[in-house]
């Protein structure tokens, strides 16, 4: 463990040191400007502490971001509109809805593609092309569309965007996974007199599980990106994406940075959870490391 942790910690330390250096470099201009306006001259020894504690820094130093993040997570009541836990939960809920929708869609398409050759020929090329379309182009429109169709909930457009991004990795892996049993295994089931349904439940589906979990890691990251992007231009008032937008519009860099790091924490948490589920499923299904 120490063998693996040491290089990671070293690189992290170097990155944080670089960050501090960049903070001084980027924020110093403002300090010099202020001093010049006041008709004073400042030495570097005075500049450096001032770059660390501005209200609206160009680049906030790590400790300022960390304290803002801590204030947002632990310093406010969870129900408060300024609590990052609250906004994080909104984003998490959107991600889960989108991911569920994406998984259902991906698996359903994969099953029909594996079952019917004509589906593969017709749908698969368009599924690939659908991913080359930058979905964010659709985001503002999906919102107006669902508004005019009488859906008031802001959750639905977000879920659609994140499902659109997350269904594709699931589809591709599931097609591969459902096809992964080799001829020998299929022949064996045939000698047992298994029908198509039984082959599917007893062989194809279990065989596809490793592929499914591998794609789930990609899908959950994509779903989170989709949800945040869905919160950006859609005039949402809740969620981490909306926090970033508010920070951007009101010129409050600290809000932006703390929302960004909260999103990073959420992403890390989701990846850990998916990894845990994968390991659990693997042990249940008798996979040995």
């Amino acid at each position: 463990m120490t063998n693996r942790a040491l290089p990671v910690l070293t690189v992290l330390a170097v990155l944080i040191a670089l960050w501090y250096a960049a903070t001084v470099w980027m924020n110093a201009t403002w300090v010099f400007d202020q001093a010049a306006r006041a008709g004073q001259s400042v030495t570097w020894a005075e500049v450096v502490p001032q770059t660390m504690a501005q209200d609206r820094p160009l680049l906030p130093p790590p400790h300022q971001v960390a304290s803002e993040l801590w204030k947002g997570i632990a310093g406010k009541k969870v129900t408060s509109k300024r609590s990052l836990v609250y906004h994080g939960y909104v984003t998490f809920r959107g991600t889960m809805m989108g991911l569920t929708l994406g998984i259902v869609l991906g698996i359903a398409l994969a099953i029909s593609i594996v079952r019917f050759r004509v589906m593969e020929m017709s749908v698969m090329p368009w599924a690939i092309i659908s991913q080359t379309i930058p979905i964010v182009a659709l985001a503002p429109m999906i919102l107006t569309l669902s508004n005019q169709m009488g859906i008031d909930s802001r959750e639905v457009p977000k879920a659609i965007i994140s499902a659109y991004l997350s269904f594709f990795p699931v589809l591709v892996s599931m097609v591969k996974g459902l096809r992964s049993p080799d001829q020998m295994q299929l022949d064996l089931l045939k000698t047992y007199g298994a029908g198509e349904g039984a082959t599917f439940w007893k062989l194809r589906l279990p065989a596809s599980m490793p592929y499914f979990f591998a794609s789930l890691k990609v899908a959950v990251a994509a779903a989170l990106i989709g949800t945040i992007v869905g919160e950006l231009p859609t005039g949402a008032i809740e969620g981490l994406g909306a926090r970033m937008l508010i920070g951007s519009q009101f010129g409050e860099p600290l809000i932006m940075w703390s929302a960004l790091f909260a999103a990073a924490l959420l992403a890390g948490g989701l990846i850990v959870i998916v990894g845990g589920i994968e390991r659990l499923a693997n042990t249940r299904m008798g996979v040995r490391p």
Binding site: T10, G241, M244, S248, P253, A264, A267, I271
Partner: peptide, 27 residues
């Protein structure tokens, strides 16, 4: 050494919602 140090971080960052940096970079 860099491989063992940078790669886990790179893997993690690749999964982050980097679009969130957009407002900061526009600033």
């Amino acid at each position: 050494f860099l491989q063992r140090g940078l790669l886990p971080i790179g893997n993690f960052v690749a999964a982050l919602p980097i679009v969130g940096l957009a407002p900061i970079l526009v600033m």
